[in-house]
């Protein structure tokens, strides 16, 4: 199955491009340059859409096949941008047995996106995360830095409404 790609148009600036190109220039020709360059690219753009991967490919002379393979292998890399509000649902063991899977599914249904994706308006992104150490509040989700615990499926609409403006 494909790792989620972005449905948002690419909005990179000339400054971002110059910054990435300079970093590539500094690392070009070094063994193992691909990982640090991809990390830098993600730091600059927040994610790694096709346009950014193509810049890395052209700059380092590494094929798109190899780059895409690396980007989809490591969970640290994202193909989709994060939303203004980043929703993380804990699917760790404790939260999961308390029903966080259902909470995740309701969010996915309401937002029309799945794990790793961002809504077309750029407002919400959704991801499943591992244990965040709040098992006493299970099931737990976070929206940016806000934490919501002891959830039931029907809480989802109220939470989304808070970030609707």
């Amino acid at each position: 199955m494909a790792k989620a790609s972005s449905t948002l148009p690419f909005g990179g600036t000339p400054e971002q491009e110059a910054q990435l190109k300079q970093y590539i220039e500094e690392h070009k020709g070094q063994g193992g340059a691909l990982m640090p360059v991809l990390q830098k690219a993600q730091e600059i753009y927040g994610y790694l859409p096709i346009e950014v991967q193509q810049m890395v490919s052209d700059g380092l002379g590494v094929s798109m096949s190899e780059i895409y393979g690396v980007v989809t292998f490591y969970s640290q890399f994202s193909l989709a941008p994060k939303g203004k509000y980043k929703i993380s649902v804990c699917l760790g063991t404790a939260c999961y047995v308390k029903g966080s899977g259902d909470v995740f599914n309701r969010l996915s249904e309401r937002l029309g996106i799945t794990n790793g994706e961002c809504t077309p308006d750029g407002r919400f992104s959704l991801e499943a995360c591992r244990c965040i150490g709040a098992c006493g509040l299970a099931p737990v989700l976070t929206v940016n830095d806000d934490v919501y615990g002891r959830l039931v499926v029907d809480d989802v609409d109220d939470i989304l409404a808070k970030y609707a403006e």
Partner: peptide, 18 residues
């Protein structure tokens, strides 16, 4: 170089970028 391994674990498969 139009094909390569994508993803990891059970999801690993051979395919083309994106």
């Amino acid at each position: 170089s139009v094909i390569g391994p994508i993803e990891r674990g059970f999801k690993t498969h051979i395919g083309s970028p994106f």
